[in-house]
Design a protein around this nucleic acid. Structure first.
Lengths: 335, 335
DNA sequence: GTGAAAGCGCTAACAA
DNA sequence: TTGTTAGCGCTTTCAC
């Protein structure tokens, strides 16, 4: 990489002249500016990012910590963050906590050494189970803003972007009730997560409100064989005619299992799941989905963080933005 | 963030003394070291990463440019890269080219300003179609090493990690031939990519070698409705009894479509696809898959890059590492 | 209109 | 054993 020093030497002017010329300073003569710019162009000069960061005490970099890159939802949020960040001239450094509290702490620590100007993160499963939020508070106290999305720690004062999880399953379940479904099941493999619990509550409320229906819930642990569990559940409960799934995996497997059992979807049984468009396109019939608008969530989180980082008044009140889900009806439900 | 300067002031010693003490220099007295370390601990001192980068002319950061974060394969590779990088004390800055040549160029340019020490990337679709590799060569000439994975540009001299695409489909097809399948189809929605073409060739070779079978290929474009296309194809070719899919999407939809048409899998028709374990777990019967070992690919790429970056002799010969796929047989094939 | 010098935070050669 | 100084690449104030 060519530096100002090298340019200045070659041009027989001082470093500061070159710097000013490249920044179109009024102080510098037209002729000099031209000469400098030409040589800079020739050598493809780019100001050294690290030097600028040191000088400005700003890295223009956002630290992103996500629990699991293999989740389509989280990957999509990351995409949204990246796009928005790039638009504003920010880079993103990505760390994957792998649902581990320890790794989350480490990543936060590691990047809080001047590598980034702020964080966007979704809380790891272990962190939620242990309810340990000290590392977040410490980071914020150190002057590095955090924006949390999806899985958030409510006790931490920071900007947040969340989904209307409760309403989403409430509405989805209502929808199945309107279809006159009699045995609606809630299936989840994320019931240790805050969002998983909210989704279950939304389902329960709708069932209870119906008056005559009984809740039936299948919780699957991460390590269990999902297909086996769901198959067994179907066998044990042959009267199931409606499914609300808290995650795409459960939804897809439930749908395929129903078909495998000779049920017609949606004639005999309806299925709704938190899932993406591409998930929906992969099942037959296409899955009716609760969409979380992951990209939008990411974009919102990035916007909020960038806004806060550029804020002179660091003490501005924290905000929580709710990105509403959409129930996108497709072929796995009647209406 | 607390700095050496602040510590030194509080301790009434010079900055360099503090620096040396923290680095356990022999020069500094035991007592001083203790005092310094205690205060550093108290203030949670962390050396400023940016200052170190400037000093050492090394960022300990890897730029990763992937075409599409929503691809499970690429996300998994990213995971592998992140893990390996973290293990060696490197961070990763992620850019998503979104299959665009322009964005790829931009990202490369942007990060080549001192932000990263090297790159790991998979070439974007547009880049492969236009066969434009000048930006890669320029970056390498600027002294920034590149490691390419999966979709690589063969004309660029750099380290590479690739998959045995040709052999993979050749073997998969052979496998179906051994099952006595008579009309084996190759389905792909990635036929504009280098890897897609290789996969098709592997299939073709196996078919031709069989002597009596005829190749039948369905190419799907990104924007087309995959389900519609595949359904129509099944209708037009009712004798299909074997499928080799170059991508998970085609494989999953083909399998589900077959079932929807009343075919028994694998009795009436076998399906093999490039796909992940989780894809396999989502179909019923479980999909027989060609596994690419994405995490391993990522880890290998990171290792190669880190090795090269730490190499004194920058001119060491470039290497190409092949990570062999595995044909993982499951319930969608006979044997 | 141009240049010298300081400073961002750190390390290390050299001086004391 | 501790301190001074220079330098990484850049911007900016101030002097010429």
């Amino acid at each position: 990489m060519v530096t100002l020093k090298q340019l200045s030497k070659e041009l027989n002017v001082s470093i500061s002249t070159v710097s000013k010329a490249l920044n179109n300073s009024e102080e510098i003569g037209e002729e000099t500016i031209k000469r400098v710019k030409e040589l800079a162009e020739l050598y493809n000069y780019k100001p050294n990012k690290v030097a600028l960061s040191l000088k400005n005490n700003k890295t223009k970099t956002i630290g992103v910590i996500i629990p699991n890159i293999l989740s389509r939802f989280l990957a999509k949020v990351l995409f949204g963050i990246e796009r928005e960040a790039t638009k504003h001239g920010y880079n993103i450094i990505t760390c994957i906590s792998n649902e581990s509290l320890e790794k989350e702490k480490e990543s936060l620590q590691l990047l809080a050494n001047g590598s980034v100007d702020g964080f966007i993160l979704s809380v790891s499963e272990e962190t939620q189970i242990n309810n340990d939020v000290s590392h977040f508070k410490k980071t914020i106290n150190n002057g590095l803003p955090i924006v949390m999305f999806d899985r958030v720690a409510h006790d931490v004062m920071c900007d947040k972007v969340i989904v209307d999880d409760f309403d989403a399953t409430y509405n989805a379940t209502k929808n199945l009730i309107l279809e006159k479904r009699k045995q609606i099941v809630f299936i989840s493999n994320i019931n240790t997560l805050s969002v998983g619990k909210l989704r279950e509550r939304g389902y329960n409320k709708a069932i209870l409100e119906s008056g005559n229906l009984k809740p039936l819930v299948l919780k699957i642990k991460k390590k269990e064989d999902h297909q086996k569990k769901i198959k067994a559940f179907f066998k044990k409960n042959p009267s199931i005619d409606g499914i609300v799934a808290a995650d795409s995996s459960s939804g897809i497997i439930a749908l395929n299992t129903a078909i495998n059992f000779g049920l017609k979807v949606p004639k005999d049984i309806s299925v709704i799941a938190f899932a993406s468009k591409s998930d929906s396109n992969h099942t037959l019939p296409k899955l009716t989905t609760i969409r979380q608008h992951a990209k939008l969530i990411g974009a919102n989180a990035a916007q909020m963080l960038i806004h806060r980082m550029q804020q002179a008044n660091k003490e501005e009140d924290v905000k929580t933005k709710i990105v509403k889900t959409s129930l996108v009806k497709s072929k796995s439900t009647l209406r």
